[in-house]
Amino acid sequence: MGTILVPHHLDERLSDVDFPVAAGRVVTAEPGGGGFWQRVAGLHAALADAVAAEQGPPAVVTGDCSLALGVVAGLQRRGVDPAVVWFDAHGDLHTPESSTSGYPGGMPLRMLMGEGDPTVAGRTGLRPVPAERVVLVDGRDLDPAEVDFLGRSAVRHVPVAAVPDVDGPIYLHIDLDVVDAAALPGLRFPVTPGPDADAVRQAALRLLATGRVAALTIACTWHAGEGTADLARPTVEALLAAL
């Protein structure tokens, strides 16, 4: 298991010290020109290269959820077409047309299914993950457009206590804001109430125990300098140890 740190929130470079890991490798890239997805496409491509080069299942620790695109693209280059199990308090199911805020971090799960802006997929070779191979875990702060999408898609939407078994290799994505915000102050987009850290950890460990997790991403979606990394460290260390 190799640990890859991508210290970015979208196109902002973050300090390495705000992440609760000692990474074996750091992946970063200067933003390019153009619109947002053009600016970050090089970072996604660099991450896809790093994941593809790993011999075992990598753990990717980063500052937002959008880097999942590079992780899955890297797995696919290795011949792994994973199911996606996505722990997040939010849906991340918007397209540019459905989003009222335009926030790119609210779009990556939908993009993994082949919708939304195609720039990163074109740069990395990312192929769509079928909706029936996607599980959204504890998405509880959903916009109306996301609720509508879930109502007509094959994506499974479940609470932390009811994560289903999935066939084949798994990409396990955990945005730590899935934890009740009362337990993790400093989150960028806090949601409460929610499951405690132990419930999230136990659900994730059950998936890791299958031996079929091909990659793990831990999204540390908090503001820098507020001590949240220290509070999250026991959960992160337990997950990394189980991969």
Rank of each mutant, 00 (worst) to 15 (best):
D88P: 00
D88F: 02
H90C: 10
H90I: 07
D92R: 03
D92K: 03
P96Q: 08
E97A: 15
E97V: 08
S98F: 09
S98R: 10
S99L: 11
S99D: 15
G102D: 13
G102H: 02
G102M: 07
G102C: 06
G105N: 13
G106R: 02
P108T: 11
P108S: 14
P108H: 15
L109P: 06
M111A: 14
M111V: 08
E115M: 10
G116L: 12
G116M: 13
D117W: 02
D117I: 05
D117N: 10
P118V: 05
T119G: 00
T119M: 01
V120G: 11
G122T: 03
G122P: 04
G122M: 03
R123M: 12
R123W: 13
T124M: 07
G125H: 00
G125S: 01
G125Y: 01
R127H: 03
R127E: 14
P128T: 06
P128L: 06
P130K: 00
A131F: 09
A131Y: 12
E132L: 05
E132A: 14
E132T: 08
R133S: 07
V134W: 06
L136Y: 01
V137R: 06
D138L: 10
R140C: 08
D141W: 05
D141Q: 11
D141A: 13
L142P: 02
D143P: 00
E146D: 14
E146H: 12
V147H: 15
V147G: 05
V147N: 06
V147Q: 12
D148L: 14
F149V: 02
L150C: 07
L150N: 05
G151F: 11
R152M: 03
R152E: 10
S153T: 01
S153V: 02
A154C: 03
A154D: 13
R156A: 14
R156Y: 11
R156N: 10
V158N: 14
P159E: 07
A161R: 14
A161Y: 03
A161K: 10
A162D: 15
A162L: 09
V163Q: 04
V163D: 01
